[in-house]
């Protein structure tokens, strides 16, 4: 169960973060505003904070007396605390800086003249993104998605603060390893660690492969 929970959380968090981050990064690059530095600092903030601080902030926000907590309670007394959805929200906040940096680097890596070549023929912002940016930033974006996914898979502090550790309900690979060790169940901890390592190594090998492809593509261009 913890493996499935971790995979679901990492997958959903990666997908949602990508969908939110891509348009933000693209618009900030295409139409820089004076407050770019402030928006960027806000998006990168979770990177410099301990995950427990992020967790605490989310608890304040989504807890029983938090603004979002009270709002969600209006819908059939729903609460994010102690749920997988809560762990997913915590993971989204923690992985946001990784996704932001990866997508930004990938988009900035696309030759500016390619974008201008499309603009000259009247391509809209969406068409530039769809037909020029995404195909040419493809490998960089995939690398960003994998890094984000791996970070999401290993998320511990913030998720634990928000979702806690309820066996069969909110347990993830990272929290299950911690509580298995606490309970003296080394076998479970090692088994889960090996699974996590295998997923991580597979992702890293794929990232190396894509990096190699990128270098070959640049050399041929």
């Amino acid at each position: 169960m913890p493996i499935l929970h971790s995979l679901v959380i990492a997958l959903v968090a990666t997908t949602l973060t990508f969908l939110v981050t891509l348009p933000i990064v693209y618009l900030l690059i295409q139409h820089p505003i004076k407050l770019n530095w402030a928006i960027e600092s806000l998006l990168l903030l979770p990177l410099v904070l301990p995950p427990t601080v992020v967790g605490l902030f989310l608890l304040q926000l989504f807890g029983k007396y938090g603004i979002m907590g009270r709002f969600l309670a209006l819908f059939n007394n729903y609460s994010l605390v102690f749920t997988l959805a809560g762990a997913t929200v915590a993971t989204i906040i923690v992985v946001l800086p990784i996704m932001y940096q990866s997508i930004k680097a990938a988009i900035l890596g696309v030759d500016r003249h390619l974008v201008e070549a499309a603009e000259v023929i009247g391509a809209t912002q969406f068409e530039v993104l769809r037909y020029v940016i995404l195909p040419n930033a493809y490998n960089g974006i995939i690398i960003g998605l994998l890094l984000t996914f791996c970070r999401g898979l290993g998320e511990f502090g913030a998720s634990l603060m928000v979702a806690g550790y309820i066996q069969g309900k909110t347990d993830t690979i990272a929290t299950a390893i911690y509580f298995a060790i606490q309970a003296g169940d080394n076998n479970t901890a090692i088994y889960l660690s090996v699974v996590d390592i295998l997923i991580g190594v597979t992702a890293l090998l794929f990232i190396q492969f894509l990096n190699h492809q990128n270098k070959r593509g640049s050399a041929n261009a």
Partner: peptide, 9 residues
């Protein structure tokens, strides 16, 4: 463009 700006993909 001077660098031609062909779409490499």
């Amino acid at each position: 463009f001077q660098d031609l700006a062909l779409f490499p993909n």
